[in-house]
Design a protein around this nucleic acid. Structure first.
Length: 773
RNA sequence: GGGUUCAUAGUCCAGUUGGUUAUGACGUCGCCCUUACACGGCGAAGAUCCAGGGUUCGAAUCCCUGUGGACCCA
């Protein structure tokens, strides 16, 4: 029989036809029947080219989750979204057009941002489609759409009515480059070289001086206390006394506090508003009066006297110089200081008192701990990231931002008495340009209003993604069926932001967990194990790789390289060698395509042996799929296919399949078994490599797609796996002997078959052309 | 300073509840067109399982201490 498959290698070009077939037939369309499985897909942020290869690998795996769920019989809702709110696009736009956000007309600026996003977004959609994602592309959502933003605002209004929102003037993390308050979660720390200045403070009514070391001498004007450690004997005599602040010539008291480290500088520390978070705590604890030394423009305020108007860094240099000139400096040390910086703009954070909106979260922590104990984490170890974060929450969440490209905070203030008013939920509100929907102030009766200009922290938008995809507030019936979602897949670096905020918000709004399971992935790093970043120039663009090797190669690489939860290395060379496996699978199929499909047969010992090994693979795969860990099925399938099925079984039964000296029954058993194994492998591989498996399935076994099939079950064959080692060893032994004797593999040789393998004798004899005796 | 995590051939990785000779892949070297596949086949070389100690008849595996790396938090 002529093989149906002619080509000797898998051609990734075929993927395009298959993609079209899927699209035309709509096989992945969500049908809310039966057991529903909703994936809270992370909407990627279009932050610029190229898209990170790790992200592409990540989405390939999320698709495997979707396909796995389908193959165990669930109705899968796999939404596709794009996250479009926030700072990066504003910065991208400022740079691209060389403009300043605050100096540009707001409407105009927003338009430019949206255009930039459209552009970047289309490439991501293109990659996601070409990766073979079985998601809902026809209804992909954007977090900046009117509908999405209306939901963000509606949930805010709901929380406002529940009394969970308040406004407060507090020291806040402030990023003066982007001109906005940021949350703790958006801060990173970097070792930055700086000067540690040892300043001389004169002790009042004494001729002694106290040395105080600080990296922030420009904050002398905001110094309200000096603290020393109560156990520090060097300073006991100073406690309760006052010192004169150099340059400022103002008196402050010396007090004791355990947070003053004896080892730091001289052991005495100045407490200023605000050098760091510890200062904030001390001001509160010691009930000090704050002095605002740094303004929103990142410059010193009037409180700084001579130094008013200077940028923080300039003021630091100038005051250090002045102190030195006046002999008030003992010494200056160069150190590396762990400095909090804004994750986005890289500006050093200043702590400045500002009026912002807060969402209460402290009182929810216990409830969230309880809820999160019900969420199954894959892998379990990453639950710890959430637990640690929950332990460290000390303040409520500041949710207002002084930016443009975000969801507007829907509030109008009475022009006369400033009373805030919120509109009706359901509509998208833009208070900075829309007329007030409120006609009369509830407090003073005035009819004129001023719209709020600020926007929300972007996590306010993204933290309701499970509510959005479940049509919360839009379609009660649909919501009931699809919420909570089944699973949240995401990467581990945003556990304390996206994952946490989603649980928080969903708990406050629905009282339930947003999902039953969370699936946490590591980062993609380069081939040397270092993090990829544009500045290092080690970013790998996934698009050319997918085009060159095909999506299935990329996907199989992703599955077999990424062990769930751990960081993974990305190298083109490794992806390239993965292609060989698909080629192997293709050629096995090509060989089998020359034989008819036989539905049942009376199997021989050799057949029973491989079927029993196949059973083992099925159960291994099940274990992996159950944990959404595709490393397990992909590697166990590859090893079985290559090293047992192709290398040993196929070689053993070739003679029987071609039926030279075997009975028809024996031949049919071989052909039956070959197809049984291959079709099982195709089903097991379908979620991982959907293209090649569908193509082969339709070529060999069915006129329908493989993606409507169910996973194969274990068949509980009698366990023949004890023969695996003897068989493979015997074969190796024969090959070695032939090599030693310089014989070709088809040459005849005289070797005894060991007793334990007698039941396989006929196949082995044909395979090696053993001399019969 | 606290936490999470990792440490196995030149490289990457497996090793399930402790049990003979430590898995597989890439790479390297040698031989080979054997009618599915040269994107292939066969073979070979290559590992003090980070160090030290403990538990045990027996440790890559469990416990302790240390070293080094990655990431997170203060």
């Amino acid at each position: 029989m002529e093989p149906k498959i002619k080509e000797t290698a898998w051609n990734p070009e075929i993927e395009k036809q298959i993609l079209k077939q899927w699209e035309d037939s709509g096989i992945y369309k969500f049908n809310p029947q039966g057991e529903v499985f909703v994936i809270d897909t992370p909407p990627p942020y279009p932050s610029g080219r190229p898209w990170h290869i790790g992200a592409a690998a990540h989405y390939a795996q999320i698709d495997m989750i979707a396909r796995t769920a389908r193959m165990i019989g669930k109705s899968v809702l796999f939404p596709i979204g794009i996250d479009r709110n926030g700072l990066p696009v504003e910065m991208y736009t400022e740079k691209k057009y060389n403009i300043r956000m605050r100096e540009t007309d707001r409407t105009e600026f927003l338009k430019l941002c949206a255009t930039a996003l459209d552009d970047l977004e289309s490439e991501m959609i293109h990659i996601m489609k070409n990766l073979g994602l079985s998601g809902n592309f026809s209804e992909y959502y954007r977090t900046d759409s009117e509908q999405y933003r209306a939901l963000t605002q509606a949930t805010f209004i709901e929380l406002w009515k529940k009394g969970l929102i308040y406004i407060a003037n507090r020291p806040n993390n402030y990023d003066w480059i982007t001109g906005t308050t940021i949350a703790d979660a958006e801060i990173t720390y970097e070792e930055i070289p700086t000067k540690l200045v040892y300043m001389k403070f004169k002790i009042k009514d004494s001729d002694k001086v106290l040395i105080i070391a600080s990296t922030r001498p420009e904050l002398l004007c905001a110094c309200q206390a000096i603290i020393v450690n109560p156990e520090d004997e060097r300073h006991v005599y100073t406690i309760g006394k006052s010192v004169i602040i150099p340059i400022m010539n103002r008196e402050v008291q010396i007090r004791t506090h355990p947070s003053a480290e004896k080892e730091f500088g001289s052991g005495a520390v100045m407490v200023c508003s605000y050098g760091d978070q510890n200062d904030v705590a001390l001001f509160r604890e010691l009930k000090l009066r704050e002095i605002v030394a740094i303004g929103k423009n990142g410059r010193m305020t009037e409180a700084a006297g001579l130094y008013a108007g200077l940028k923080v860094k300039q003021a630091r240099e100038k005051i250090t110089e002045d102190l030195q000139n006046q002999g008030l400096v003992e010494k200056v040390e160069s150190i590396n200081h762990r400095t909090p910086i804004s994750e986005r703009s890289k500006a050093p954070i200043e702590i400045i008192p500002m009026e912002e909106y807060y969402l209460k979260q402290k009182e929810s922590v216990e409830k969230i701990k309880e809820l999160s104990s019900k969420i199954i984490f894959h892998p379990t170890m990453h639950k710890q990231i959430l637990t640690n974060w929950l332990e460290s929450i000390t303040i409520d969440w500041p949710i207002s931002r002084r930016r443009f490209y975000g969801t507007e905070i829907p509030i109008w203030y009475c022009k006369k008495c400033s009373e805030p008013h919120i509109p009706e939920p359901g509509k998208y509100h833009r208070p900075w340009k829309d007329p007030s929907p409120i006609s009369k102030c509830t407090k003073c009766g005035t009819t004129e209003f001023v719209g709020e200009e600020r926007t929300f922290d972007t996590w306010m938008d993204s933290s309701i993604s499970p509510l959005y995809v479940s049509k919360y507030g839009r379609d009660e019936e649909f919501f009931k069926k699809t919420y909570p979602a089944a699973i949240r897949p995401q990467s581990k670096d945003i556990v304390r932001t996206w994952l946490y905020y989603t649980i928080l918000r969903c708990e406050q709004l629905t009282g339930q967990t947003p999902w039953n399971e969370a699936w946490i992935m590591g980062y993609g790093v380069d081939e040397h194990g270092t993090k990829m970043s544009k500045s290092k120039g080690n970013v790998i663009d996934p698009l050319p790789i997918i085009q060159k090797f095909g999506a299935d190669t990329f996907r199989f690489w992703s599955a077999s390289e990424i062990n769930l939860g751990y960081d993974f290395r990305c190298s083109e060379q490794k992806i390239e060698t993965t292609r060989k496996f698909l080629s192997k699978l293709w050629n096995i199929s090509r060989f089998l395509s020359g034989f008819p499909v036989i539905k049942s047969a009376k199997t021989t010992p050799a057949d029973n042996w491989i079927l029993s090994e196949l059973d083992k693979v099925v159960s291994e795969c099940k274990r992996g799929f159950y944990d959404y860990n595709f490393f397990i099925p992909s590697t166990s399938i590859r090893e079985f296919t290559w090293n047992l099925f192709a290398a040993h079984y196929i070689e053993m039964v070739k003679g029987r399949a071609y039926s030279s000296s075997f009975s028809e029954e024996e031949r049919d058993a071989a052909i039956f078994t070959l197809h049984k194994v291959l079709s099982t492998l195709l089903l097991l591989l379908a979620p991982i490599t959907p293209f090649i498996t569908d193509h082969l399935w339709q070529t060999l076994y069915s006129d329908k797609t493989i993606h409507k099939e169910m996973f194969p079950q274990q068949e509980d064959h009698e366990d023949w796996t004890r023969f695996t080692k003897p068989i493979t060893e015997f074969n190796s032994n024969v090959w070695n002997k032939k090599k030693e004797q310089n014989l070709s593999l088809k040459d005849s040789i005289d070797i005894d078959i060991p007793d334990e393998l007698q039941q396989f004798a006929k196949d082995l004899q044909a395979m090696h052309n053993l001399k019969s005796r």
